[in-house]
């Protein structure tokens, strides 16, 4: 009975959170990762993005609904040994963790499954980059050294002993918060970031290794704050989990 009440409570919480999307109008922008040769702007269609990352509470509700995704039942193809390792048990967060912290130690498969369970999906890299380019006041703050330094400051700090709750930092121009300064986030096409794992290789000379246009080399090295996101994502395999890696969901606009 208690279990059912818990599920109900969590589901209600999930429902409330699930409606917290920001609608982001589409547009063209110059991405750090060019689509092809030449630095043509990328077109992002209008989409909706979660205002903040998926929380422990929301993911717990999902895992209870779909026990296939419990850490003691998940197929090792879909998640490595660190999956949800910080929870007290497969079905319980434990007293040390807060429900409103972003969920971390989740693999791409798990994140994808969660979003699909809501009828949604993970954002694409371009969608994520587009939303993340905004500061609190302008849609594209990437030229602002102060904004860049704030992002770099997060990289400069070691992992905090306790992750803050989601939504604590001010929302950006689009009404989305925590794209910077909290956690790394999965994107749908993380394995489309065809950067070579030796970050000094330039110009994609290795055509045979990457059929077609060769490896993407970051277009504007000045946008190193974004570069570091790409570097991080390109170090991952789909089943990997890390202590600082979570996600949020997106959907096409209607």
């Amino acid at each position: 009975m208690r279990h059912l009440l818990l599920i109900a409570a969590v589901l209600c919480g999930t429902a409330a959170a699930a409606s917290e999307h920001a609608a982001i109008g589409g547009g063209q922008f110059s991405s750090v990762l060019p689509q092809g040769p030449g630095n043509e702007p990328v077109t992002v269609a209008p989409f909706k993005l979660d205002r903040h990352p998926v929380t422990n509470a929301e993911f717990l509700a999902f895992v209870l609904k779909q026990p296939r995704w419990r850490r003691d039942r998940v197929a090792t193809l879909f998640a490595d040994a660190g999956y949800l390792a910080h929870w007290r048990s497969a079905t319980d967060l434990g007293g040390d963790l807060r429900p409103q912290q972003p969920v971390t130690r989740v693999s791409w498969f798990a994140a994808k499954a969660y979003c699909e369970s809501r009828g949604e999906r993970l954002p694409t890299w371009y969608e994520w980059e587009y939303a993340a380019a905004a500061s609190e006041t302008v849609p594209d703050a990437r030229g602002d050294p102060a904004w860049r330094q704030r992002i770099l400051d997060w990289y400069a700090q070691p992992s905090p002993p306790v992750l803050p709750d989601v939504g604590r930092s001010p929302a950006n121009y689009y009404g989305v918060s925590d794209l910077h300064g909290l956690i790394w986030e999965w994107v749908l096409d993380f394995n489309a970031l065809l950067v070579s794992s030796d970050s000094r290789e330039q110009g994609g000379a290795d055509r045979l290794r990457f059929c077609g246009e060769g490896a993407l080399s970051a277009a504007d090295r000045e946008h190193y704050a974004v570069l570091m996101r790409i570097a991080f994502l390109s170090s991952l395999e789909a089943r990997y989990t890390t202590a600082n890696l979570g996600f949020r969901c997106a959907q096409d606009a209607r």
Binding site: K112, L193, R209, C211, G214, A215
Partner: peptide
């Protein structure tokens, strides 16, 4: 397709002309 590539460790992306850039 995305999931199978993820499992096999294959990276790919579609380019504007319809071609794909991918690891072999």
């Amino acid at each position: 397709v995305r999931e199978l590539a993820a499992v096999l460790g294959i990276r790919y992306r579609q380019l504007p002309g319809g071609m794909f850039s991918h690891s072999a």
